[in-house]
Amino acid sequence: MAVQHYSGSCQCGAIAFEVDADLDQVNACNCSRCRRLGWVLTFVPDTAVTMVKDGPTTEYLFNKQQISHRFCPTCGIEPYARGERNGQKLYAINVNCLDGVDARSLTPNMNDGASY
């Protein structure tokens, strides 16, 4: 697929963003949070994301408290999370929040987050 430009948002539109992402590289996780949310996510460097509307957002931290899960306090949708890996700031983009993308048609890599 290669890197393409996408727009995304929470359900009510209070959080909106644009992202350059390769949806051939999506992930699903079996940790307690991702499993409950049905997340399909892709990780991108923070430079690949432009926030169009950022909020307000509410933060949720769990487990090792290294990932800042950001969600809309109005509609409850979590369009992204922020974190860091190997010194690089990253976004975890909720592919379900991207306009015109059917995340269920993608084939995600499975991560065993439940074992961490």
Rank of each mutant, 00 (worst) to 15 (best):
G13I: 09
G13C: 12
G13M: 10
G13V: 10
I15P: 06
I15Y: 13
I15T: 04
A16F: 07
F17C: 03
F17N: 01
F17M: 06
E18D: 15
E18F: 06
V19I: 07
D20L: 07
D20G: 02
A21I: 01
A21E: 09
A21V: 09
D22C: 00
D22N: 05
L23D: 06
D24L: 03
D24W: 09
Q25S: 08
Q25A: 11
Q25Y: 07
V26Q: 08
V26N: 00
A28I: 04
A28Y: 03
A28C: 10
A28G: 10
C29K: 05
N30R: 03
N30E: 07
N30Y: 02
C31H: 03
C31I: 01
C31A: 06
R33C: 07
R33S: 07
C34E: 02
C34G: 02
C34Q: 05
R35Q: 14
R35K: 15
R35I: 00
L37Y: 11
W39R: 01
W39N: 08
V40T: 14
V40M: 03
L41Y: 12
T42R: 05
T42C: 09
F43K: 13
V44S: 07
V44P: 02
V44I: 04
V44E: 03
P45I: 06
D46C: 06
D46L: 03
T47M: 00
A48M: 07
A48H: 11
A48N: 11
V49E: 07
T50R: 15
T50E: 15
V52R: 14
V52P: 01
K53C: 05
D54Y: 09
D54F: 11
D54A: 15
D54Q: 12
G55R: 08
P56I: 13
P56E: 12
P56K: 14
E59P: 03
E59W: 00
Y60I: 13
L61S: 08
L61P: 00
L61W: 08
N63L: 13
K64C: 04
K64A: 11
K64Q: 13
K64W: 08
K64D: 12
K64E: 13
Q65F: 10
Q65W: 03
Q66V: 10
I67N: 03
S68K: 09
S68P: 04
S68I: 01
H69E: 05
F71L: 02
F71I: 06
C72V: 09
C72G: 00
C72W: 07
C72L: 10
T74N: 13
C75L: 10
C75D: 10
C75W: 13
G76V: 04
I77D: 05
I77C: 12
E78S: 15
P79E: 05
Y80D: 06
Y80G: 06
R82F: 02
R82G: 01
G83E: 08
G83L: 05
G83R: 12
E84P: 01
E84H: 12
N86V: 02
N86S: 14
G87A: 04
Q88W: 03
Q88C: 02
Q88N: 10
Q88R: 15
K89N: 13
L90N: 12
L90F: 11
Y91R: 06
A92L: 15
A92I: 11
A92K: 07
I93K: 11
I93T: 09
N94W: 12
N94R: 13
V95E: 08
V95L: 12
